[in-house]
Simulated scan of single mutants.
Amino acid sequence: MKALFPYEAETRGIIVRVSVSYQAEQSEPAHDRWFWAYHIRIENQSRRGVQLLTRHWIITDGRGQVQQVRGGGVVGDQPLIGPGDSFDYVSGCPLDTASGTMEGSYGMVDELGASFDVAIPRFLLHVPVTAR
């Protein structure tokens, strides 16, 4: 699993796995625009069902400029994830530098009504040498 999803973090039995890929066809380096797609898998290895309600991203570009993004759910959904189940989605991130990082957290609530944050591991956004 590590090869497919090289980044992972676990909080209270919820595992967040991330893979990222540079999207050359959506990037325009001559106009300072680079784009990455990231695939997130959220696995519930706890004994209770959970619902993802919010997201908080911290996006840092190659110059150290930080942008924070907060919102409800992910890709228009607030998924319910039962014990032993997982939820996958794909999204993207543009930057005006050829490298950066993303990290953050999901706001969750379990089936008993307890709210908690789940860590999203820090992952790298970089242009592969072969694409430069």
Rank of each mutant, 00 (worst) to 15 (best):
R70Y: 07
L95W: 07
G82N: 13
G104H: 05
Q45W: 11
Q45S: 12
Q45A: 14
G71N: 09
Q78A: 15
W36A: 04
D88P: 09
S86Q: 09
G72M: 14
R41W: 00
T101C: 05
Q51S: 12
D110G: 08
I59G: 01
P29F: 10
V74G: 00
V75P: 01
P94C: 06
E28F: 14
Q67I: 12
I58A: 13
G72K: 14
S46R: 00
R70W: 07
Q67M: 12
D32C: 10
E28R: 15
R47M: 11
Y106G: 01
G62L: 11
V109D: 06
V50G: 08
F87I: 07
P83K: 12
G84Q: 04
F35M: 10
S46D: 01
A24G: 00
G71D: 05
H56V: 06
S99T: 15
E25R: 10
G49Y: 02
F35Q: 06
R55C: 02
V69L: 02
Y89M: 06
M108D: 07
R63S: 13
D85V: 09
E103I: 04
Q65N: 13
I81D: 06
A24T: 01
I59C: 04
R63K: 15
L95E: 08
E28A: 14
D88Y: 05
I42S: 01
Q26F: 11
I59Q: 04
W34M: 05
T101F: 05
P94K: 07
D110L: 07
P79W: 04
P79K: 08
I40S: 03
G100P: 05
E28S: 13
P79Q: 06
V75Y: 03
R41T: 02
M102P: 04
G100K: 10
E43Q: 12
S91W: 13
T60P: 10
V50Q: 08
G107N: 07
W57K: 07
V90D: 09
M102L: 12
A30C: 06
Y106I: 02
D110E: 08
N44A: 04
Q67F: 11
L80H: 15
D61H: 05
G82A: 15
S27G: 01
V66P: 09
R70N: 13
S86K: 08
A30R: 12
R47G: 14
L95R: 07
V69H: 00
Q51L: 08
P29C: 11
G104Q: 03
G92C: 11
Y22G: 02
G72W: 13
G104T: 03
W57N: 05
D32P: 00
S46T: 00
Q45P: 00
D61G: 03
Q51W: 07
Q78M: 15
V90R: 09
Q65Y: 12
Y89S: 05
D88Q: 14
H56C: 07
V69A: 01
I40T: 04
Q67C: 08
Y22N: 04
W34R: 08
V50I: 15
R63Q: 14
G76A: 08
Q26L: 14
E103L: 09
A98H: 13
A24H: 04
T101V: 06
A24K: 10
Q45V: 11
D85E: 14
G100W: 09
D85P: 06
S99H: 13
A98D: 13
E103W: 03
